[in-house]
Simulated scan of single mutants.
Amino acid sequence: MPAVARASYVDPRVIAAYQRGKTIYCALKDLGDSDGPATHGAAERAVIELLNRSK
């Protein structure tokens, strides 16, 4: 199996959720157009919520 860089890793639950039509689109839309450090925590929390719902 090839090595994968941690920065490139995508949790398989994220892919499975996407295939079921579940994304963090609404959370990102609510953040607006900003892509600065202030939005990273909110996006990470949205991904964690998505993963928790995928259990």
Score class of each variant (00 low, 15 high):
1 M>V: 13
1 M>D: 11
2 P>T: 14
3 A>C: 02
3 A>Y: 06
4 V>T: 11
5 A>Q: 12
5 A>S: 13
5 A>Y: 12
6 R>S: 04
6 R>C: 02
7 A>D: 15
7 A>H: 11
7 A>R: 15
8 S>I: 01
9 Y>T: 07
9 Y>F: 15
9 Y>R: 13
10 V>E: 07
10 V>T: 14
10 V>M: 07
11 D>Q: 04
12 P>I: 06
12 P>D: 15
13 R>E: 00
14 V>N: 02
16 A>P: 03
16 A>E: 15
16 A>L: 10
18 Y>N: 13
18 Y>F: 12
19 Q>R: 13
20 R>W: 02
21 G>N: 04
21 G>E: 00
22 K>N: 08
22 K>R: 12
23 T>Q: 06
23 T>G: 03
24 I>R: 01
24 I>H: 04
24 I>V: 15
25 Y>W: 06
25 Y>C: 07
26 C>G: 15
27 A>E: 07
27 A>Y: 00
27 A>P: 00
28 L>D: 04
28 L>T: 12
28 L>W: 01
28 L>N: 06
28 L>R: 06
29 K>T: 14
29 K>F: 13
29 K>I: 12
29 K>H: 11
29 K>M: 10
29 K>G: 04
30 D>S: 12
31 L>Q: 13
33 D>L: 13
33 D>M: 12
34 S>W: 00
34 S>G: 06
34 S>Y: 01
34 S>R: 08
34 S>F: 00
35 D>L: 09
35 D>G: 10
35 D>F: 07
36 G>R: 05
36 G>D: 15
36 G>A: 10
37 P>S: 11
37 P>G: 08
38 A>T: 13
39 T>L: 02
39 T>D: 01
39 T>F: 01
40 H>S: 14
40 H>V: 14
41 G>F: 03
42 A>V: 13
42 A>R: 09
43 A>I: 03
44 E>D: 13
46 A>M: 02
47 V>D: 02
47 V>R: 05
49 E>K: 09
50 L>T: 10
50 L>N: 08
50 L>H: 11
50 L>K: 14
50 L>M: 14
50 L>A: 11
51 L>W: 02
51 L>T: 05
51 L>H: 01
52 N>F: 06
52 N>C: 04
54 S>I: 11
54 S>Q: 15
55 K>A: 11
55 K>T: 10
55 K>F: 12
55 K>N: 14
